[in-house]
């Protein structure tokens, strides 16, 4: 018993009460108005700094074009139709490759993983292939399939498929055992349990996995086009680089970002609409 000196430990404690804060809040939301302000700042501030640098700094436009120059280049590319053609080419490749990979990987991931036997068969192989970066397959793909559309689409399929399968498997691992056993007790057979319980339960996780892998697909298409293509966003960047059209490079980079973000936001929207039950907030 430390009865003699009750204050002893207290004299060593550097006790501090948590002070209230707005900016440094942890695991708490900031006021909505403030959030909007920050969100706008997040885009507007870099834009402003860019403008400031090109207006008052002595930069060669070949090195750093001004926002106005980029906007002009954007207008020209839009008018010539080059931008549209390249965008369609890239989006088409991503669309086909990603959709194909998703349609293959989700059933294999979800239904495969539900059975421990199939999981044991697939997991080692896929876990191994996953660590081979998809761009490293490009020489092989060109060797096997030439330089047309097929190798580019297949590259995306490779890059998305293995990750998607493994991520789908992970979502299935977290389905509570009680939920599956309740279904058996209610008279459900294995197939009904798969289709009507496991699948709906993992759907939000699957959409999340798709979001992450869509970003990967979007990167892969650009990489593929940098190497061999006649059209596409990535292709145009590499050509513009050769002719020192920095303004066009900027236009294409921004377009790539905008399209990627739009795809991401649409998947987020899909998630909110189809999986209201999984929403963390009430």
């Amino acid at each position: 018993m430390k009865q003699e000196d009750p204050g002893s430990i207290r004299s060593h404690l550097q006790s501090k009460t948590l002070r209230p804060t707005v900016f440094w809040r942890v695991a708490e939301d900031i006021p909505p108005r403030l959030r909007t302000v920050f969100n706008v700042t997040s885009i507007a501030l870099p834009l402003f700094l860019w403008w400031l640098a090109t207006t008052f700094g002595q930069f060669d436009p070949k090195f750093l074009p001004s926002p106005a120059q980029v906007l002009t280049a954007f207008g020209q590319l839009l008018q010539s139709g080059a931008l549209l053609k390249d965008t369609v080419a890239s989006v088409w490749r991503v669309g086909v490759g990603f959709l194909g990979a998703t349609l293959l990987s989700i059933p294999i991931g979800v239904y495969g993983c539900s059975f421990a036997s199939i999981r044991a068969l697939l997991e080692p192989l896929f876990g191994f292939i996953r660590y081979m970066p998809a761009p490293a397959f490009i020489p092989l793909l060109i060797l096997y399939l030439g330089i047309e559309e097929e190798p580019k689409i297949l590259l995306i399929v490779i890059g998305v498929f293995f990750f998607n399968v493994l991520m789908a498997m992970d979502t299935v691992k977290f389905v509570p055992k009680d939920l599956i056993e309740s279904t058996f007790m209610l008279g459900g057979n294995r197939l009904a349990t798969l289709l009507q319980v496991i699948f709906p339960y993992v759907l939000p996780g699957l959409i999340d996995a798709c979001r992450i892998n869509l970003a990967a697909a979007w990167q892969l298409v650009i990489v593929a086009e940098l190497i061999a293509a006649t059209e596409g966003l990535g292709r145009h960047i590499s050509v513009a680089g050769r002719f020192l059209r920095t303004d066009e490079i900027f236009v294409y980079l921004i377009i790539i970002g905008v399209i990627g973000m739009t795809l991401d936001l649409s998947l987020q929207y899909l998630m909110r609409v189809s999986c209201r039950w999984a929403d963390q907030k009430r």
Binding site: L179, E181, M185, P200, A278
Partner: peptide, 16 residues
């Protein structure tokens, strides 16, 4: 099988 109704300790309703 459904001839035995089961209520688990933890909540096992289907959340969706």
């Amino acid at each position: 099988g459904p001839d035995r109704g089961m209520v688990f300790q933890h909540y096992t309703l289907y959340p969706w």
